[in-house]
């Protein structure tokens, strides 16, 4: 029996829906700065925790993060994974390193790529800095940062990164 003779026991019913995404006002403030090559976190008026990228709130306190906190593009690797399978719809070729990036002065981390280093040398606590795309390619996205790359500074003890209310 050839493949065509086997009765098909399913049918395809594709669903295509289009959405107009909006970033939200806190994220818009952040992305307007990212477009200029600046990283500006948002601070909680109560506990002073700094969020980057911001969602507009501090879930510790349940209030809006309305304090702008300029940060540098340096930080450390809080943790990471080496991904060996492709991301659906993304041309990036495995294996690649996806890391929780903790910028200096920030109290949460975000996921981004690590490159310009042999994968086996990547460590938790390693110091890193953003590698930006050429300025003319900058847009309203953290993709302005191509990836983060190690810098020649001593490792950080990530246990010291845990936020405590002062």
């Amino acid at each position: 029996m050839s493949a065509e003779d086997i009765p098909k026991d399913y049918s395809e019913s594709p669903i295509n829906l289009e959405y107009f995404y909006t970033a939200g006002s806190a994220t818009t403030r952040f992305l307007n700065q990212v477009k200029e090559g600046n990283i500006v976190g948002q601070g909680c008026p109560k506990c002073k925790a700094v969020y980057v990228p911001p969602r507009g709130s501090c879930p510790r306190c349940g209030v809006a993060t309305d304090i702008e906190v300029p940060l540098t593009d340096k930080g450390c690797i809080e943790s990471f994974t080496v991904v060996h399978i492709p991301i659906p719809g993304n041309p990036i070729v495995p294996p690649y390193v996806c890391a929780m990036i903790r910028l200096d002065g920030a109290n949460i981390s975000f996921l981004h790529l690590i490159q310009d280093v042999d994968i086996e040398n990547i460590r938790i606590g390693m110091r890193i800095q953003a590698v930006w795309k050429p300025k003319e390619e900058w847009t309203h996205s953290l993709e302005n940062i191509k990836w983060f790359a190690p810098i020649d500074e001593p490792d950080v003890d990530v246990a010291t990164l845990r936020f405590h209310e002062s």
């Binding site: 909006t22 939200g24 006002s25 806190a26 507009g56 349940g62 209030v63």
Partner: peptide, 15 residues
């Protein structure tokens, strides 16, 4: 069109 408001920014004011 609440365009500029994300979920957090819609919910927090009423709460």
């Amino acid at each position: 069109n609440a365009g500029a408001l994300n979920e957090v920014e819609l919910i927090m004011p009423v709460v």
